[in-house]
């Protein structure tokens, strides 16, 4: 990331705060926009998606993303740690290959394939999102732990630290920015995939979009799309902020 992602600090500050304000306003205030959508689309009987509240859908969406991402962090981080220990080294190549190959599988196809295995509902969505999120987390955990210089490890051991202490006090803190970047990739993909998960029976912010597309109700589509886009931008900006903190903290 030499060129990309470099932006003045003020822009980022604004992006997170503005995004948050916009997101909350959209989620809470969408019902009061009903007259606006009624004017924009006079042909529609129901210009506002009211089958579920947008607050409910947003919370469910965030729950699905958080649960799958947490599971992926625990499992993927654990696997990444395991294959960088001396006793797990043999499995490293396999894990890296699976992580690289798996990421060429489009998330939407993974989601669809979970249905024949698990049936419809939030469960296949949760499993598919977890599996997909695992890959960037694993990849970056291995890369991050790998990037810790052997000299640092040697001096940590020289200070009398045990393997667990070296891992938690030296390796993981130093690898944290790289691991966080993997988590960010995973979470952003999951926000989008969770929206598509409405097609497999999970009630997320994708539901108004899918219902709107199937019933030619453009107002529903716009309402769902605006909120899910704002959610993704806010989460990304939040990760940006966290990455900034981490870098400053680890330089200390």
């Amino acid at each position: 990331m030499t060129v990309a992602g470099m932006a003045p600090r003020e822009f980022l500050t604004d992006r997170l705060m503005l995004g948050l304000v916009a997101l909350v306003a959209l989620v809470l205030g969408m019902p009061s926009l009903k007259p606006l959508f009624a004017t924009l689309y006079p042909g529609l009987d129901r210009p506002l998606y009211e089958a579920e509240s947008f607050v409910r859908l947003t919370l469910d969406h965030m729950a699905l993303v958080s649960l799958s991402s947490l599971a992926a962090i625990l499992l993927g981080g654990g696997a990444g740690i395991a294959v960088t220990r001396p006793w797990g080294r043999e499995f490293r190549g396999l894990l890296e290959t699976v992580a690289t190959m798996g990421q060429t599988f489009p998330p939407v196809a993974v989601l669809a394939l979970a249905v024949p295995v698990m049936g419809f509902g939030p469960e296949p969505a949760l499993i598919a999102l977890t599996l997909y999120a695992l890959l960037p987390v694993v990849e970056n955990t291995v890369a991050g732990l790998d990037g810790v210089s052997p000299a640092v490890l040697d001096s940590a051991r020289g200070l009398g630290m045990g393997p667990a202490e070296v891992l938690f006090k030296v390796e993981l803190p130093l690898a944290a920015p790289v691991i966080l970047a993997g988590v960010r990739t995973a979470v952003i993909i999951n926000v989008g995939t969770a929206a598509i998960a409405s097609t497999v029976g999970a009630k997320t912010l994708g539901l108004p979009i899918i219902v709107g597309l199937n019933g030619s109700n453009q107002a529903y589509v716009i309402q769902g799309a605006l909120i899910v886009a704002a959610l993704a931008v806010v989460i990304d900006a939040g990760f940006d902020r966290m990455a900034g903190w981490l870098t400053r903290w680890s330089r200390r």
Binding site: G192, A195, I209, A225, L226, V233, D236
Partner: peptide
């Protein structure tokens, strides 16, 4: 790059919808 990064962040189904 900031513009393209934001576009990349927006979920596909939302961009199609918008």
């Amino acid at each position: 790059f900031p513009v393209l990064n934001v576009v990349q962040t927006v979920p596909s189904i939302a961009l199609f919808g918008l």
